[in-house]
Amino acid sequence: MTNQYIPPKVWVMDGENGGKFANINRPTAGARYEKVLDVGTHPLQLHSLATPNGQKVTILLEELLALGISAAEYDAYIINIGDGEQFSSGFVEINPNSKIPALLDRSGDTPIRVFESGAILLYLAEKFGHFLPKDIAKRTEAMNWLFWLQGSAPYLGGGFGHFYAYAPEKFEYPINRFAMEAKRQLDVLDKQLANHKYIAGDEYTIADIAIWPWYGNLIINNGYDAAEFLDVASYTHVVRWAKEIAQREAVKRGVIVNRSWGEEWEQVPKRHSAADIDLVMSKKT
Rank of each mutant, 00 (worst) to 15 (best):
E126Y: 07
K191Q: 12
V232R: 11
I199E: 07
A31E: 14
K270T: 05
L132H: 12
L124Q: 01
K170Y: 08
A200V: 08
K270P: 01
Y74L: 03
Q45H: 06
Y173Q: 01
L64R: 01
I136S: 09
G40W: 12
R253L: 06
F229D: 10
L104D: 06
D276T: 02
V268F: 12
A29D: 14
D202T: 06
N95I: 00
L132D: 12
E228V: 09
Y215H: 10
S89L: 05
D190S: 10
H47R: 04
Y198C: 08
S107P: 11
G84E: 10
L149R: 07
N195I: 13
G254Y: 00
L60A: 02
R240C: 02
W265G: 04
A242G: 09
S98C: 12
E93I: 00
V39C: 08
M1W: 12
L103P: 01
I79Y: 07
M180P: 04
L149D: 12
E73W: 11
W148T: 06
D202P: 05
F91W: 10
R177T: 11
A50T: 03
N97G: 02
A119W: 13
L156V: 04
D187Y: 14
E85K: 10
N176K: 01
V114G: 13
K134T: 15
G159S: 03
R113N: 14
T140Q: 13
G262L: 06
I199Q: 04
V188A: 08
A137W: 10
D278Y: 15
S48P: 01
M1I: 03
I199H: 03
K99L: 07
G201W: 12
A226N: 08
V36Y: 04
N97C: 02
S70G: 14
L279F: 04
F131W: 01
G201L: 06
A119Y: 10
I175V: 08
A275S: 05
D187N: 15
Q267S: 04
K9T: 15
P52W: 06
Y123P: 02
A233C: 10
I277H: 06
Q150R: 00
S89H: 02
Q4L: 09
K9N: 12
L156K: 07
W11A: 14
N195A: 15
K20Q: 15
I78F: 07
N144F: 12
G129W: 01
T2G: 06
K183Y: 11
S260R: 08
E169K: 11
F160N: 00
Y77C: 09
N176V: 03
P213G: 11
G223C: 15
R248C: 00
N176P: 02
S273P: 02
R253V: 09
D83I: 11
M1N: 07
P101I: 04
E264H: 03
T140P: 04
E116L: 14
S273Q: 01
I245W: 00
M13D: 09
S234A: 13
P174W: 02
G84K: 05
